[in-house]
Amino acid sequence: MKTLANLFVVLLSIQGVRAGEPIHLGFVEHANRQLTQLPLSERESHLRTMIAEFPGEAALHFRLGNLLAEQRRWPEARFAYAQANQLDPGHPDIHYNLAIALDHLEQFADASRHYRAALDAAARSQHRFRAAPLQQRLHKLEAYRQ
């Protein structure tokens, strides 16, 4: 039986998508929803396989970051979010989650920079975080640095 990640790659090849090419975001989101059906231990493996096939998909790196953050694996989550941010630097949720990872790693200057970038990007596009708590945390970080 094929793994979910292998099935994902097979389905994309049927649609004529080659490894490394951009894929439809809806398809990525569908695959992400399917991953939630799997045990936590298998999700990471499947995500890493999909990322190996489609390294240019920010949504896959972001999802991996979320999975690692759920496990409080902050250095790895920070790396996954940084990869997602390189691929999609204007996405407010990526900046926000990267800031949280940096905050947990006590990299407060970088966390502040990404919290601010999240707020700036949120003014231009949809996002899932609440701005008020983010602003409160940003003020605390800035007060701490002074």
Rank of each mutant, 00 (worst) to 15 (best):
K2P: 13
T3K: 02
T3Q: 00
T3G: 14
L4Q: 01
L4G: 00
L7R: 13
F8P: 01
V10C: 05
V10D: 09
L12T: 02
S13E: 14
I14F: 10
I14L: 12
Q15K: 15
Q15E: 12
G16T: 06
V17D: 06
R18K: 15
G20N: 05
G20A: 10
E21V: 06
L25A: 13
L25T: 10
G26T: 08
H30E: 10
A31P: 00
N32F: 08
R33C: 05
Q37T: 14
P39H: 03
L40S: 11
R43A: 09
R43F: 07
R48P: 01
R48T: 05
T49K: 07
E53Y: 03
E53G: 04
F54Q: 05
F54W: 08
G56Q: 07
E57G: 00
E57D: 04
A58H: 01
A58F: 06
L60I: 07
H61G: 05
G65F: 07
N66V: 11
L67N: 03
Q71N: 00
R72P: 00
R73A: 15
W74G: 04
W74P: 02
P75R: 08
P75H: 09
E76H: 09
E76Q: 15
A77D: 01
A77H: 03
A77M: 09
R78H: 10
F79S: 09
Y81T: 04
A82I: 03
A84S: 02
L87M: 08
L87R: 07
D88W: 12
G90N: 12
G90R: 12
P92I: 10
P92A: 09
D93P: 03
I94G: 02
H95G: 06
N97K: 13
L98D: 01
A99V: 12
I100V: 15
A101G: 04
A101Y: 00
L102S: 02
D103A: 09
H104K: 14
H104M: 15
L105R: 06
L105F: 08
E106D: 11
A109Q: 15
S112Y: 02
R113S: 10
Y115V: 10
R116M: 10
A118G: 10
L119H: 01
S125R: 14
Q126F: 14
R128E: 10
A131T: 15
A131G: 03
A131E: 15
A132S: 12
A132P: 06
A132H: 06
P133N: 01
L134F: 11
Q135T: 15
R137P: 01
L138Q: 05
H139N: 12
K140F: 12
E142K: 11
E142W: 06
E142T: 14
Y144E: 12
